[in-house]
Design a protein around this nucleic acid. Structure first.
Lengths: 396, 396
DNA sequence: AGCGCGACTGCAAACGTGTGCATAATCCGT
DNA sequence: ACGGATTATGCACACGTTTGCAGTCGCGCT
C-alpha cells in the first residue's frame, strides 16, 4: 500500500501518474499514447489524462528513445551555417520538422570528409531517425554505405543519378536558362561563364545548364570563355574573371556560378578599369541577402532556399511515416531578379543611356530593353525583399 | 554458458564487449570510463579496451543519459539563425563545445515569448545539461524562474544586472566610444543617434554608451538628435533617419545602433538627395558580412561574434565542470573599422577632397584626417576580411 | 594461524518507457 | 448456466548504462 517512492524531486513520471490515477504504469503508457489508446477503457483513459494533466506529466524522450530506438530527432549535415544560404535551408528544415514533433540536430561539416564522418557517427549514436544532407559534394560515401543499410536520407541542394534517394534541389537548368535568355534579349552574343567547382553538384549542374541554354539559343559556346573556379568565393571569382580578361576581351557578359563568384568578377573588372554593366554585364546566382545594395545592384537568379529546406523536411517525414513511400525527387523553380548589373550590349559609343546605376532608394532598376517577364520578376523581387528584412528583423 | 543473446543486429553493446573480454559488463563500464579506470586492474582494462576496439563499440548516449540524467547536450536559444550575426555566434558555440564532447541543440525563437517557452520545455525534456541564451530581450523569465532551480544558463550578447549569471557580451560602451571619438576627430560636433529598440539589451546599452561618450568628449547631446527605433532593421532605420531630417538638418553625422539601421539611414539620405559621407557621415555597428561592398562602404564597429559564441561555450563548460565555479561576466573588445561612410565635416563648400568613395577593389579607404589608430584598425580589418571569405569559402 | 586490509570484480538494482503475454472481467449465444 | 469470445488491465521484462554494495582473493602483520 505504501508507495515505493515519493518521487518528490524531478518531473513527474509514468509511475506517479499511475499512482494518482490508481492504475498500473503500463496502462498509463497505453492511455497516453494516441496509437494505443483504443486498448484502454474510455473512462479510465480520461482519468489517466486528468492525472497526467494535474501532475504536469511530460514523457521523457530519453527513456522512450532507449526503448524504441527512435529519438524524434533528425541529423542535419550542412557545410557552414555562416553561409546565409544554408542558414535559410536550415531554418526551413526546422520549421518543417517542428509541426511533426521532430527536432533537427545540426552539425557543420565544412565540406571536410572526416568532420562529416565524425558528425555522422555522433548523430547515429544519438539514434537520430534520419539524415538531411545539405552537403553538396557530388560523390559521397553516405549514399553507398549507409542508405543500403536502411538509413533514411534526404538530400537537399543536390541530387544523385540513382532515383533511390529522395532529394530536393533548385532547378539549376531552368535558372541558368533564365539568365542566358535575359542576356540574349539584351543583345549579348558572346557570353562567358565563371563556373563553380565541378566537384560540387551545384557547380556541375549550372555548368551543364549553361551549355544547354546557349545551345538552345543558337549561341556559340567558346571553350575559351568558360573557366572553372575551385571554390564558391570572391577570391576565386576574381581570379577566374581576371584570367578570362587576360585571354581576350571580346565577351560582353558573364554568367557566374553564384553570387560570390559574381562579386569576384566585380573586383576583377574594377581592377582593370572596366565598368559593370557598361563594359560587361554580370549575372549571379542565389540572390543572397543584400546583393541589391552592392555596386552595382546584382542581377541574379533567386533560389528559394527556405522552401528547399521545408520540402526536404516534408520528404523526410514522408519517409519516416511509411516504410515504402516512393523516394521523390523534387525541383523548385528559380526566378530571375533583374537589377543593375546587366544592361543592353553597348552600341559602340552610345553609353549615355545606361550610365548611372539606378535612382531608387535601394538601387532597384528595371532594364529598359526588357519587356515581357521583367515586371513579373520585379514584383517577385519585392516579395523577397520583405521576407529578407523580416528575417533580419528579430535583432541586431 | 550459452550467451543470453547473440546481439547479431545493431551496434555492439557493453555486454558484447564483456563477453569477448570475459568479464562482467560492470567491469567493462568501469574500464572504459577514464574516470573510473583506476578501479580496475590494468591488465584486464587493456583486455577490455582491445575487445571494445575490435567490436567497434560506441557507447549509447541515450542509455547513458537515462542513467545519469545528463545528455552532453546544450540547448541554444537564438532569435534567428538567418541573421548572420547569430549564425556566427552559433558557429562559435558549436566549435567551443565540440572539443569537450558536447553538442548544441539549436532552436530559433524569433524573440517570441511562447516559442521560447516551448523550445525551452522541449529541450529540458531532452535533458539538456544547460542553456546558452542568445536572445537579447532585457527582461526575461528564464532568469527568474529557472536559474534559481539549478538550471545552468549562460547569456551571450546580453547581460543582467545581477552578477549571478555568467554572460559574455561585446563591450558596447567602448565600441560606441570608438565611433564617437572617430567622428569627433573628423571635426563633427553635432552628432545624431539612431538607437535600437530599448527593449533589447544591445539597443539599450549602446544608447547609454552614446550618452557617456558624448559627455566624455564634452559634446552636447541634443535630445532632438536621438531617435529610437522599434526594431533592428532597414525600414526602421529609414523611418528614424527621415524623422531626424524632417526635424532639422544641422547635424553632420549619425551613429546607428547597428548596421541595418545604418543602411536605413542610407536610404533616407538618398531619398532626400543628401549624400553620404559628403553630406552626412554614418557609422554602423557589428560589421556584418559584405558591408564593405555597400555604397558607400560602411564604417562600423566590429564585434567578434564568433569569439562571443566560443567563450560562451567555455563559460558553460566551466559551470558544468565544477559546481561552484564563479559566474564570470566577460566583455569582448570591439574594433572600429573605418571605411567610406565617414569623412571630415564639410567646410561649407570645399567638398572636392572627399568626393569619390574609394578607389580600391573592395572600396577600402582610409580617411585622410585620421592619424593614430586608423592604421591599426585597418590591418585588423584585413584580418577580418580573410576570416569572412574563409567562412563563406565552403560552398555556394 | 588468524586477522585485517587493500585491490579487484561480480551482482543487481536502478533510470522511465513500451509491449508481449497472461489474467481477470464482462458479454453473448445456445 | 456455461463455454468461448471480447475487452481491459496487470505483470514483468527489455532497452544499455552506471554504481553502491558485497564478495573473493591475496598478502602482510602479529
Amino acid at each position: 500500500m505504501a508507495p515505493r517512492k515519493l518521487s518528490l524531486a524531478g518531473p513527474a513520471t509514468l509511475r506517479d501518474v499511475a499512482r494518482v490515477a490508481g492504475v498500473h504504469p503500463g496502462t498509463v503508457s497505453r492511455a497516453l499514447n494516441p496509437q494505443t489508446r483504443g486498448l484502454v477503457n474510455e473512462r479510465t483513459a480520461r482519468r489517466v489524462l486528468e492525472a497526467a494533466e494535474e501532475l504536469g506529466y511530460r514523457p521523457n524522450p530519453i527513456a522512450r528513445g532507449l526503448r524504441t530506438n527512435r529519438s524524434h530527432t533528425i541529423g542535419v549535415l550542412v557545410p557552414d551555417l555562416m553561409n546565409p544560404l544554408f542558414a535559410a535551408v536550415v531554418r526551413g528544415i526546422e520549421d518543417g520538422l517542428r509541426e511533426a514533433g521532430y527536432t533537427p540536430l545540426i552539425a557543420n561539416t565544412d565540406n571536410d570528409a572526416t568532420r562529416e564522418r565524425v558528425a555522422y557517427e555522433a548523430m547515429s549514436a544519438r539514434q537520430v531517425d534520419g539524415f538531411i544532407a545539405a552537403t553538396a559534394v557530388r560523390d559521397h560515401w553516405l549514399l553507398a554505405d549507409q542508405v543500403g543499410a536502411g538509413a533514411k536520407v534526404v538530400l537537399v541542394n543536390r541530387r544523385v543519378d540513382s532515383d533511390a534517394i529522395p532529394a530536393v534541389t533548385g532547378n539549376d537548368h531552368e535558372g541558368i536558362r533564365l539568365a542566358v535568355e535575359h542576356l540574349a534579349k539584351l543583345g549579348h552574343r558572346r557570353i562567358a561563364h565563371v563556373a563553380g567547382s565541378q566537384a560540387l553538384y551545384t557547380g556541375w549542374s549550372r555548368h551543364r545548364g549553361f551549355l544547354d541554354a546557349m545551345r538552345a539559343r543558337r549561341l556559340e559556346v567558346d571553350p575559351g570563355l568558360v573557366v572553372f573556379s575551385d571554390a564558391f568565393n570572391e577570391r576565386e571569382g576574381a581570379r577566374c574573371c581576371g584570367e578570362l580578361l587576360d585571354r581576350r576581351r571580346d565577351f560582353t557578359a558573364i554568367v557566374a556560378g553564384n553570387d560570390l563568384l559574381a562579386l569576384g568578377c566585380y573586383d576583377a573588372l574594377e581592377e582593370r578599369a572596366l565598368r559593370c554593366p557598361e563594359g560587361v554585364s554580370v549575372v549571379g546566382y542565389n540572390d543572397m541577402p543584400f546583393v541589391e545594395r552592392f555596386r552595382p545592384p546584382l542581377t541574379t537568379v533567386r533560389v528559394p532556399h527556405y522552401e528547399l529546406g521545408a520540402t526536404a523536411a516534408a520528404l523526410m517525414l514522408e519517409q519516416l511515416r511509411s516504410r515504402e513511400a516512393p523516394p521523390r525527387q523534387l525541383e523548385l523553380a528559380p526566378e530571375l531578379v533583374i537589377r543593375g548589373s546587366t544592361a543592353p550590349v553597348a552600341d559602340t559609343g552610345d553609353r549615355a543611356t545606361t550610365r548611372t546605376a539606378g535612382k531608387g532608394p535601394a538601387g532597384q532598376r528595371r532594364t529598359e530593353g526588357e519587356s515581357g517577364t521583367a515586371g513579373e520578376t520585379r514584383t517577385a523581387r519585392a516579395g523577397k525583399a520583405d521576407r529578407n528584412t523580416a528575417s533580419l528583423d528579430t535583432l541586431q
